[in-house]
């Protein structure tokens, strides 16, 4: 590198001291990923890129998982960069051949292997935020955070947090049917809300992925103190489930938007349907019904509250390799 120690300025032109009209023209032919790499060459070039490009970036997805960190970002002209930060110890021997990067049309996939994954993520993230503007379009589509990574979220650049409008905070627990786990989820949610105060309008979904029950609630403009009542008191036992579902059919609260149950849970349709007016399937479009299947189950039940005016239950039975939907029930809050 010794030959570069001569300051390359003055008489001979270099990339950094061309007129701005020329820079704008050159940068026009570079995609966000190339601009990002160019910005890493020197501070002067980074400033030039900043002044002479108009890329805005919105983050589609940031996943701060326990094992891997990844982000997916989209530029104003729909270039996508998928960047995954792996631990260097996981680096497979063949990555050198592919330069850890794949390029498909407008999509770039970068698999980076780093000694210090969180630090590298923050470094790259800060550089991306400093290169591409993120004013009105700056938005995180999905932010997945493992409890252990919460500190990383609070270490994101301050400017980023100020500009971000986060639509959804998703809290997932694999053991949501255990009270201690639910409590841990609630505590974590509160911690997120107090650490990262960027959820002006937010939705929270809790899910149990224990294979039996998936339970989602969405809250809007909810004070975090209300979380305890909404979540912990909901028991996940089978007896409660029947009454919960029955109430859910007619409840006016907007907070619960969907509930999916698979065959392993025992629920009694007679209890649920008792006293409710039912209407035969009226020939509405099939796409209105979202089905939920689980392989190995003989029956599948899907309960969907399409909007607050009615709810649908569809029941399917497995026949051979396929499913035959044999019952569809629509529930209305009032008799038409």
């Amino acid at each position: 590198m010794g030959q570069y120690l001569v300051k390359n300025r003055g008489n001979s032109p270099d990339l950094a001291n061309l007129p701005d009209t020329v820079h704008r023209e050159i940068f026009k032919y570079l995609k966000p990923w190339d601009l990002f790499k160019l910005s890493r060459v020197s501070t002067e070039l980074r400033n030039l890129i900043n002044e002479n490009t108009n890329f805005t970036i919105k983050f589609h997805h940031i996943c701060l998982d326990e094992n891997v960190i990844s982000m997916r970002l989209e530029s104003s002209d729909r270039y996508l960069i998928n960047w995954t930060f792996y631990d260097a110890s996981r680096k497979p021997y063949w990555t050198k051949r592919f330069l850890n990067k794949c390029h498909y049309g407008k999509e770039f996939h970068i698999d980076g292997y780093y000694e210090n994954v969180p630090q590298s993520f923050l470094f790259v993230f800060q550089n991306i935020v400093s290169i591409f503007k993120g004013e009105e379009h700056f938005k995180v589509g999905q932010l997945l955070v493992h409890p252990n990574r919460l500190d990383l979220l609070s270490r994101l650049p301050n400017d980023f947090l100020k500009n971000v409008n986060c639509d959804k905070l998703s809290i997932k627990s694999t053991k949501a049917n255990q009270e201690t786990e639910r409590k841990a989820s609630i505590d974590f949610t509160k911690k997120v809300l107090s650490t990262v105060q960027l959820f002006k309008n937010f939705e929270i979904s809790f899910s149990s992925f224990d294979g039996n029950f998936e339970y989602e609630k969405q809250f809007e403009n909810l004070d975090s103190s209300g979380l305890d009542d909404c979540f912990i008191e909901n028991r996940f036992d089978d007896i409660y489930l029947n009454y919960f579902l029955k109430n859910w059919m007619f409840t006016e609260t907007k907070s619960i938007i969907s509930c999916r149950i698979i065959e392993k849970r025992i629920f009694n349709l007679e209890v649920i349907l008792d006293g409710l007016d039912t209407t035969r399937w009226d020939g509405r479009n099939w796409s209105e019904i979202r089905n939920f299947y689980k392989s190995g189950a003989e029956h599948s039940f899907n309960l969907t509250r399409e909007d607050k005016s009615y709810a649908v239950i569809s029941i399917s039975k497995r026949i051979g390799n396929g499913w035959n939907e044999f019952g569809i029930l629509c529930f209305y809050p009032q008799k038409n």
Binding site: K7, N8, D14, I26, K37, L38, V41, S42
Partner: peptide, 16 residues
């Protein structure tokens, strides 16, 4: 510039 790493760009354009 396209497809080059920052190090390669530095080397090609002799940018310190």
């Amino acid at each position: 510039v396209k497809g080059k790493s920052p190090e390669e760009i530095r080397e090609i354009w002799m940018i310190p």
